Simulated scan of single mutants.
Amino acid sequence: MQNAIFDEFLALVEACVSAARDAGTLDVGVENIQVESASVAEDIVLRTDERTGATSHLLRIDLTTRYQPTTLERVLERREWSDGCILMRNTKSDKAALCEPSRHFMTEKGELIQRVILHRPLRREYHQLRDLEESAWVECAEPRFAKLWEAEAEDSASRLHTETVHLATGLLLPIWSNLPRDYLEVNRIVDLEGRSWLGRIVYDTDVADVLKAFGVNSSVKLTDEAVVKALRENRSITIEQPFGAVLKRSRVAGDLRIEIAGAPADQVEWLKSIGCFTEIIAYRIRVFIPADNPEPVVKALLPPL
């Protein structure tokens, strides 16, 4: 009985931590981001303290990192201590994944939605069980799984990844409330030469709003890739063109959709022509972007750079 209680408690804790991490509200203190190399591409002064002269900055930093895939030993260990795990492979991509039962949830109509986590060498994916059963994922024998996993892990570990991040740094406390509230972690970026930068990550989709809050003229334009990435990370994006609206994730009948909230009624037909679909919910027309392929709609929706 005691073990069952502790198992249930730990499962609830893991679910809460996972939900907080997905929402960007998990506070883990100062988290180090180890990179191969880093260089400051742009330094914008946001605020200068009148008394001390200390400054707050928004840095644009170019990072080169090496992928850190999960090892085969670690994923097999997870299978041992987590009940109900299944080794799987994708018949289309020939990639491996560990399927682990996740916490279920209830819809507004009381329907139980079963979920699973697919552990991949570089990421975790959450799926509804019914969607997984209709996909290309099938159960796999351990020798085949091990071969596929190690091949993908070795390939990933040999590659470098380049990305650009924005970091609010310097005197942070006076500007803390002006920074986005959906990601509160303090990060320290450290490269192999020992250089480091301490501050809060600001997502590309939030940079323009941060600069505007401090009266800094912004020429930042959102890319299609940045918007799609933000939506897949369950973050909302406010757009001003071609009309004012909010792109966000909304749960409808148990499905997590991408919604254009605030879309003008006279733009609905145009939105449908670029790939959106509508649904009447509570006597109101709501507009959605196909979640499985949002890129074409986002590209058509955003003004060209």
Rank of each mutant, 00 (worst) to 15 (best):
A4H: 14
I5K: 15
I5T: 11
I5C: 12
F6H: 10
F6Q: 12
L12Q: 13
V17L: 10
A20T: 03
A20Q: 11
D22F: 01
G24F: 08
G24P: 10
T25D: 07
D27Y: 07
D27F: 13
V28C: 14
V28F: 04
V30F: 02
E31I: 02
Q34I: 12
S39V: 10
S39A: 07
D43G: 11
I44H: 00
I44C: 02
G53K: 06
R60Y: 03
T64K: 07
T65Q: 15
T65W: 04
T65D: 12
T70W: 15
E73K: 10
S82K: 15
G84R: 01
M88T: 03
N90F: 03
K92A: 05
D94S: 02
D94Y: 04
A96V: 02
M106S: 06
T107S: 00
G110R: 01
L112G: 01
V116K: 00
R120Y: 13
R120N: 11
P121A: 08
L122N: 14
E125A: 12
H127D: 04
L129M: 08
L129Q: 12
R130Y: 15
D131K: 08
D131E: 15
D131T: 08
E134P: 02
W137V: 02
W137I: 00
A141D: 11
E142G: 03
R144A: 08
A146K: 01
K147N: 09
L148G: 03
A151W: 00
A153L: 09
S156Y: 14
S158I: 12
T162Q: 12
N178L: 05
P180E: 06
V186C: 03
R188E: 11
V190R: 13
E193I: 07
Y203G: 09
D206V: 09
V207I: 05
D209F: 14
V210C: 04
K212P: 01
F214I: 06
V216M: 04
N217M: 07
S219Y: 12
V220P: 00
K221P: 06
D224P: 13
E225M: 13
E225H: 11
A226V: 01
V228S: 13
R232A: 08
E233C: 10
I237Y: 02
T238W: 08
E240I: 00
V246R: 11
K248S: 14
R249K: 03
S250D: 09
D255Y: 10
L256H: 11
L256M: 14
I260V: 11
I260W: 07
G262F: 05
P264Q: 04
E269K: 10
E269C: 03
L271Y: 03
S273H: 06
I274D: 15
A282D: 15
R284Y: 05
I285Q: 14
V298N: 08
P303Q: 06
L305K: 04
